[in-house]
Design a protein around this nucleic acid. Structure first.
Length: 110
DNA sequence: TCCTTGACGAGAT
DNA sequence: CATCTCGCCAAGG
């Protein structure tokens, strides 16, 4: 029983497995994760899966951004800022508008 | 069952 | 660029 299988639905686990493969310094959009998991049109659910992700990070959730190369705002908690800090710590660059150049940092499964 | 909610995305204006 | 509109689809009320 892996750490993520405890509180995630079978569908969520498909996304999480993909996310676990994203190498440091690279990112993937929600839609890309969904497609790589063989579940196109489920971009929104990738976000849902991460949201209900338990504290214990067995998954590099911070390497998932939206299709514009931006960190999706989720409101009050400062997890947005944390995400940016974690990414910059991996040398991922943000431009003046807070965007990541996906042509350079996006990753796709081999 | 019906209705509403989204860490989304593509396209039109 | 910034907005807005729609399509998408599982979950929860």
């Amino acid at each position: 029983m892996s750490a993520i299988s405890r509180s995630a639905s079978a569908l969520d686990q498909a996304f999480l497995r993909v996310i676990q493969q994203i190498p440091p310094g690279r990112v993937m959009s929600y839609g890309a994760v969904a497609r790589a998991a063989g579940l196109p049109r489920h971009a929104r659910h990738v976000g849902v899966a991460l949201k209900r992700l338990p504290d214990e990070q067995a998954v590099p959730w911070w390497r998932v951004v939206n299709g514009e190369g931006r960190i999706s705002p989720r409101g009050l908690d400062g997890s947005d800022d944390l995400q940016r800090v974690l990414l910059e710590a991996e040398a991922v660059e943000f431009d003046g508008a807070g965007r990541i150049d996906l042509r350079r940092f996006a990753w796709l499964p081999d």
